[in-house]
Amino acid sequence: MGAFVKTVIYALFTVILSNLVGFILALVVTSGIKGQNLFRTGFFTPNIIGGIILGYIWNFIFSFGLTKFGEFTGISWMQTSWLTNPTRALMALIIVSAWQMSGYLMVIYIAGLTAVPSDLLEAARVDGATTWQTVTKIKIPMIRGTIAICVFLSISRCFMSFDTNLSLTAGGPYKSTELIGLQDLSDSIYQHELR
């Protein structure tokens, strides 16, 4: 499987997961819960951490933290590092990227959700609309533009992914997580070594 196909698979799952998590987080922190500003800050923090540092932190978690937990609990599939298995390494990269991006998208979704007219939401509540109906019939249609912005931003960030890919997996194992940005680097290094 080539780097472009891997990047498309990575982008597809990361875009869906990060937008879904970002939207759910935005719903939670705009629902009026106690300490919502603290939660907003906490959820946005992963976006502030640089991709290189984030990759090394999650490399430690996948290589040592989860394996120790797997040994302690006896869960066999967690006793080996995710980063040594080609399929699970790509899943790990998707999880880390979605985790980092969801806080950024949450902020954009919050801006969209706060622009929904409160009298419309109040009228829906008076008419007996459930929370699910309010979200699916009022909030989501009212923030279609915000959703489009978030989808396109997350797609562009996925295709520009480099630092987390380099520090988390370095394209391994067996080039199973070598995305387009990382492949260009490895090709240029290889060409330089040939000279």
Rank of each mutant, 00 (worst) to 15 (best):
M1K: 03
G2L: 12
F4Y: 13
V5A: 13
T7E: 04
V8E: 04
I9T: 13
I9F: 08
L12G: 11
L12K: 13
F13L: 15
F13Q: 07
T14W: 00
I16Y: 07
L17R: 10
N19H: 02
L20K: 09
L20P: 05
V21Q: 04
G22I: 00
G22R: 00
L25N: 10
L25V: 13
A26K: 01
L27Q: 02
V28W: 05
V29C: 08
S31D: 07
G32H: 09
I33T: 06
K34Q: 12
G35T: 08
T41M: 14
T41W: 12
F43K: 04
T45K: 11
T45G: 08
T45F: 15
P46K: 07
P46Q: 07
I49D: 07
G50D: 02
G50C: 02
G51E: 03
I52C: 08
L54H: 06
G55Q: 03
Y56W: 14
N59E: 12
N59H: 12
F60G: 09
I61W: 11
F62R: 06
F64P: 03
G65K: 00
L66R: 03
F69D: 09
E71P: 00
E71H: 11
F72L: 14
T73M: 12
I75R: 04
S76G: 05
Q79N: 09
Q79H: 07
Q79T: 15
Q79Y: 04
T80M: 09
T84V: 14
A89P: 01
M91K: 11
A92M: 02
A98E: 05
A98T: 05
A98S: 11
W99L: 06
S102E: 04
G103F: 02
L105M: 12
L105H: 05
M106Q: 05
M106D: 06
V107Y: 02
T114K: 13
V116G: 03
E122K: 15
R125I: 15
V126Y: 04
V126Q: 04
V126L: 12
D127A: 07
A129Q: 09
A129L: 11
W132K: 12
W132N: 07
T136R: 13
K137M: 13
K137R: 14
I138M: 08
I140W: 01
I140S: 03
I143Q: 02
I143S: 00
R144K: 15
R144H: 11
T146K: 03
T146W: 00
I147W: 01
A148G: 09
V151W: 07
I155T: 05
I155Y: 04
S156W: 11
R157T: 15
C158L: 05
C158R: 02
C158K: 03
D163V: 14
L166E: 07
L168C: 06
A170N: 14
A170V: 10
G171L: 03
P173T: 01
Y174Q: 09
Y174T: 08
K175V: 08
S176F: 04
T177V: 11
E178D: 09
L179V: 01
L179Y: 00
L179F: 01
G181L: 08
D184E: 14
L185V: 15
Y190W: 09
E193F: 14
L194C: 09
L194N: 10
R195K: 14
R195T: 15
